[in-house]
Design a binder for these strands. Structure first.
Lengths: 256, 256
DNA sequence: CGTGCCTAGTTGTCTAGACAACTGGGGTCT
DNA sequence: AGACCCCAGTTGTCTAGACAACTAGGCACG
């Protein structure tokens, strides 16, 4: 706390500088789980910022999940493990890189087609709208992990067929070439058994346990961007989820 | 917007009254996806509140996921489906009630035992600490859905064995009797095949596809409260996830 | 001993402003 | 037509305060 010099000329907001400084102390063990963080008042006085700025720094730590506030008591370090590998909206490439594997893909199909009803529904398409259909075997460290069939509306990305390198990450391409950023996705997972084709592509026995994913990915506006169906090996692939309370926008009505 | 009369005497915060009012308009279709919400300035002027209060109302809608802000442009209604059934930290009972099924349980075991190494690790127990082990078959509408084995530290709930009704919801009991509220959980899901015992309890063929869940649930402080291993039928149980961007505490560094 | 009161410390909410940074449109100059 | 500037509107950040609500501990009183 003492050693922090705020840079008031920087483009980096003050509250963010404070947040990062506290986060550093938490990660390095300077503040242990359960112990109180400096109060808004203390931060405010020591760093010569207004209380609202100090507050914003503390609130941002809460929304990261590394701290929690109790009215009348203080703001405390949570024992939540930061480093734990939590699944976000990630492309297969990003997911594999995050756990240290080298991902690549084997292209099965890349074409513009008329979508099935489920696809058209999920992507909210007009009857005549085509989609770009991308079917790939996903491979990590030379081991086939899953078969993925991804559909994106042709209307939104008319020249994607020419511009897309099938070995690259689809999400990265959408972000870099079209400035479309996937920010969330809804996903349904089922447990099933590999059929003959899947077994052949994944090099497992027919009837092996597999995950069946059906995922719809959305941009910030809520516009549906991608509909994916994929089959992943149950023996080499695990799903890690962090389930949370739905943050209800802050206020907790008091019936107590 | 026009018809809202703020109650300045109420214990309900102003920003929350505004948030609820806007949320009502969004849900009822008064504001359609993609359209801008009233700006901070407009809300501030029209409702005679300070801009920071109007801002807090809009930010809380963003954190609910029903809106998003763009600097220099405005705050817009997101097309995210509110009603979609997204999995949170829920007990089986709550989960089944949420989708309209009547849950109940068949008790297999309820006892205090010395935990295995995986359990002790996950719950951060001392070597001699016992756990309460609760093994149940989970049933929805008379159909067996899964087998669940739940462990909680005896030290935290010394009289739970007497006070707990095995037919009730464990989470509800912990919340009501001990004021311990589960706020998040880490979960690993694997795809597997039912062994003989599971097949018998779940009334499926041996070798049927199943989900294997391993879940650790935490209170707000980050204290681990419960460690669960469960096996659920792959044919009747689906996982629905909403994957999100990790909210990073607000600031996006500009390399653009 | 316990009950109740008071007080210091803390977070929650709210005000009324200020400037910065960015967007998008319109107008002007070249 | 294109490049540039300016301006109004919007969100992001920040200030310096205020009062309310709650917690926990100390203290006096019964």
């Amino acid at each position: 706390m003492d050693s922090l010099n705020l840079d008031r000329q920087s483009v980096v907001p003050l509250y963010y500088q404070i947040q990062q400084h506290l986060l550093g102390h938490i990660r390095s063990g300077g503040f242990k789980p359960g112990t109180p963080l400096p109060s808004e008042e203390v931060i405010s006085k020591r760093l010569r910022v207004s209380r609202m700025t100090a507050r914003q720094a503390l609130k941002s730590l809460c929304s990261l999940g590394v701290a929690y506030s109790q009215r009348g008591k203080g703001t405390f370090v949570s024992a939540v493990k930061l480093e734990k590998n939590i699944r976000q909206v990630l492309s297969f490439s990003e997911e594999m890189e995050a756990c240290g594997s080298r991902p690549h893909s084997e292209l099965i199909a890349l074409e513009a087609v008329l979508p099935g009803e489920d696809v058209a529904d999920a992507l909210c398409l007009q009857p005549a709208d085509k989609v770009i259909r991308l079917r790939r075997v996903r491979i990590a460290d030379s081991l086939p992990m899953g078969v993925e069939c991804s559909c994106v509306p042709l209307r939104l990305f008319p020249d994607l067929l020419e511009k897309f390198d099938p070995r690259a990450s689809l999400y990265r391409t959408l972000s870099e070439v079209y400035s479309v950023h996937i920010v969330h996705a809804d996903e349904v997972v089922e447990a099933g058994l590999a059929n003959s084709e899947e077994a052949r592509l994944l090099r497992v026995a027919k009837g092996s346990p597999v995950f069946l994913f059906t995922r719809t990915a959305y941009a910030e506006s809520g516009q549906a961007i991608e509909y994916v169906k994929s089959t992943f090996r149950g023996d080499r692939y695990k799903i890690k989820n962090r389930l949370g309370r739905q943050s209800n926008g802050g206020w907790v009505g008091g019936s107590a």
